[in-house]
Design a protein around this nucleic acid. Structure first.
Lengths: 343, 343
DNA sequence: ACTCATTTTCAAAGCGCTTTGGATAACGAC
DNA sequence: GTCGTTATCCAAAGCGCTTTGAAAATGAGT
């Protein structure tokens, strides 16, 4: 069932039917009703490609999945972020397109997406400190939004991010206030921009308290359970082990907890742990009392905001880039407590 | 840069340029070279929508994200499955499209996707025991593949699945062989088809060993850490608690472990645990020695196969539906051991 | 009854590509 | 020199929609 057939059934021109369906005023209410009824009856849906060709808009937003060939790693926040964004896309009539690209060809993938007219805008996820993708998109002068920021970017761009620095600063201060002096940071990969900002917050808090940072207590790893476990076990064997640990994600924090258990240490009593909690739907941090004391910020919510900001940007491309900084909550759970006495 | 412009630059017709680029034989090698060089030089990419309109193929595969409004839950396997599928789509020149839909309107979402000509085929994830989506798609006579199966389906359909029944049967037998008699099952939601099959395997193993199933030891919950923890803690308080637990996912198994730790029980010694491991990239089950004894099957691999099966189906729609049953490995980790003596 | 303004409808062009059905050129063979 | 073949290339139609510019229908005013 296409426009032509529908208009023939109705005895109207394609023009009129199209206008009736798209809410243009040049059509009487009576015929509009008649057209809508017929469209519903025959289950007519305008062909997206034809519509896109005619209007010049794809009504599609693109995401590129970077498949790190080295560490075949899918970001665990991917699903929830996407679910949030998809919901807003749907509300505004947009579809969501994913393209796979090798590490090497990611910039090319973005470029192709636009040249093919496949998308009206793209979301850039997981920006690194030095992020060539941003300048590629900026130079192409196409609508895009970054989830996160990139310190090394030369030009302005739209982004939405969590205040990673402040949240880790606050978390570190909280541990210091509890009496901790040996505070470890199990960070994400340091090439990621968010990891660098978190470290800055951590270091600043130490400095404000007059504590010297110890390189032995600053680990950087992929945010898996295994690495959280590995780094923690490693640090517990130090001559002067940490009494508190900041973990970059709930998943690595779970690895931290496992290492503590194995060492016969009780989390919250012997060693305090604070995790960053993205509020992943399958990894809720407890019901009433959170398991982990955590810096909390919903990544699904970030996805929703990113979607709306991007659509806004598509609609008003001449406006200057907008930015949005979300503050993470610091929620108190049972994984933190005062420094244990070591007599 | 479009075809028209490119052909004008080259002093050729659109026909010839199009054919040169698409590898048709009616064009001399010399001009083909010339055309390809010019296309590369100007960065020409054919417009996807125009191409789709002309060919009648979208070169897009659709996935519908069901956003359970009740339990706002994104399936944790989503990311890895999609990453696997996306890779194969890209290899075959397909894009991947996601559409969001409410629980209620999911069937309508699939229908619309095809009517709009937005996709050439769809992947149906997370089938339930009774799955109306399958009959909707079958009746529409469109290419689709199911990741999982649906017991209640009346018509044949293409699917790829893990042999859930056999893998849980084997896991249960393994525990029985170790001397366990009180074996609990912390399953996924029972309306899900995979959960039902796992339970069947579990029950069959009990029956073969002459053990009576105890409803108290069969729990069904969303596969989150919290629920794994909750159900385990609950069962440990029974008069005759389980000595072994089968968990439907690594994530719920982590919750199980937490409950055991809290109860002062050592996993693998006091209580044995077997988890189902989808080999999620951020939840690897140990490096050398797996943490959990597990039934293991890569969901990313399943995504790759699903993609290829679907593309195959799109290309040969008249062929009967194909199916593929993957066997899970049973990998031995440190979470299982003989029944503890209870004197 | 006639004009003018307004409302309602329509025919046709155009979006960027593929593809059908020729047309033209080149090349031997006779 | 003519004919048939083959190798190249092209003009134009068509995919399903939107949108421009014009025409038909309606209604009000005189």
């Amino acid at each position: 069932m296409n426009l032509k057939q529908l208009s023939q059934i109705l005895g109207l021109s394609q023009t009129t039917v199209s206008r009736a369906l798209n809410g243009y005023p040049e059509v009487s209410e009576a015929t509009r009703m008649r057209v809508q009824a017929a469209a519903a009856k025959h289950g007519y849906r305008p062909n997206s490609r034809a519509k896109g060709l005619a209007t010049g808009k794809a009504m599609v937003i693109g995401h590129v999945i970077p498949s790190s060939s080295q560490h075949e790693m899918v970001n665990p926040i991917f699903g929830d972020f996407v679910a949030g964004a998809a919901r807003k896309y749907a509300e505004h009539g947009y579809d969501m397109m994913f393209t796979h690209a090798d590490d090497i060809s990611i910039e090319e993938a973005y470029r192709t997406l636009f040249k093919r007219g496949a998308v009206d805008g793209v979301v850039l996820q997981g920006p690194k400190v030095v992020e060539p993708r941003i300048s590629v998109l900026a130079k192409m002068n196409v609508p895009f939004i970054v989830h996160g920021r990139s310190t090394g970017a030369g030009e302005p761009y739209s982004w939405i991010d969590v205040n990673n620095k402040r949240s880790f600063l606050r978390a570190t201060q909280f541990l210091i206030d509890l009496g901790h002096r040996r505070i470890a940071l199990i960070n994400g990969l340091e090439e990621m921009d968010f990891a660098q900002r978190r470290r800055e917050g951590y270091l600043e808090a130490l400095q404000m308290a007059g504590l010297a940072p110890d390189p032995e207590l600053m680990r950087s790893a992929e945010m898996t359970e295994i690495y959280g476990h590995h780094e923690t076990r490693n640090m517990l064997q130090l001559a002067d082990p940490p009494t508190a640990i900041l973990a970059a994600s709930m998943i690595s924090a779970i690895g931290v907890r496992r290492a503590l258990d194995e060492a016969g240490l009780k989390m919250g009593r012997d060693v305090s742990v604070i995790a960053h909690d993205d509020e992943l739907s399958y990894l809720k941090n407890g019901q009433d009392v959170p398991i982990f004391t955590a810096t909390r910020s919903s990544v699904r919510h970030a996805g929703e905001i990113a979607a709306e900001m991007l659509i806004d940007r598509i609609n008003t491309p001449e406006d200057p880039p907008k930015t949005r900084l979300l503050e993470a909550e610091l929620v108190l759970g049972s994984s933190t407590g005062p420094t244990p006495d070591r007599s």
